[in-house]
Deep mutational scan, measured.
Amino acid sequence: MIFPGATVRVTNVDDTYYRFEGLVQRVSDGKAAVLFENGNWDKLVTFRLSELEAVK
């Protein structure tokens, strides 16, 4: 189960963010908004829950 605050990895091989890890900001309607941070940039991207896996 994916909840806000969880760290997730993108599993969709066709996505630009494949294998990126980010922090879930919100979850609704089968989608999750994931925040990616890297140095001087932040990006908030929405994914279907089926495209994400929780990082242990």
Rank of each mutant, 00 (worst) to 15 (best):
I2C: 05
V10C: 05
L35E: 04
N40H: 11
N12F: 04
A54V: 15
E53G: 04
D15V: 06
N12L: 08
Q25D: 05
T7P: 05
V27N: 02
L44N: 04
Q25P: 00
I2A: 03
D14I: 08
D15F: 03
V24E: 01
V24M: 01
N12C: 06
D29I: 05
V24R: 00
R19G: 15
Q25N: 04
A6F: 08
N38Y: 14
V55I: 12
E51N: 05
V27D: 00
Y18N: 03
A32D: 00
T7E: 05
V10L: 02
A54K: 08
N38Q: 12
A54H: 10
E51D: 15
K43G: 08
E21P: 04
R19P: 06
A6H: 06
L44E: 09
K31T: 12
T16M: 14
D15C: 11
K31Q: 10
Y18A: 04
G39H: 10
D14W: 10
L35N: 04
N40S: 12
A6R: 06
D15S: 15
V24Y: 00
V45D: 02
F3Q: 10
G5D: 03
F20G: 04
E53R: 06
F20Y: 12
F47R: 03
E37H: 14
E21L: 12
R19I: 03
N40Y: 09
T16E: 14
Y18L: 02
L35P: 00
L44T: 10
F3G: 08
D15L: 07
G39T: 09
L35G: 03
G30K: 04
V34Q: 01
Q25F: 09
V8H: 02
G22S: 01
Y18P: 00
R9I: 10
G39A: 10
G39V: 09
D29N: 13
I2W: 04
E21T: 12
Q25C: 13
G22Q: 00
R9K: 08
P4W: 05
V55E: 03
N38G: 11
E37S: 15
G5I: 02
V27E: 02
F47M: 04
D29Y: 08
R9Y: 06
L23Q: 10
L49T: 06
D42R: 15
Y17I: 02
M1K: 11
A32W: 02
G30E: 06
K31A: 09
M1T: 11
V24C: 06
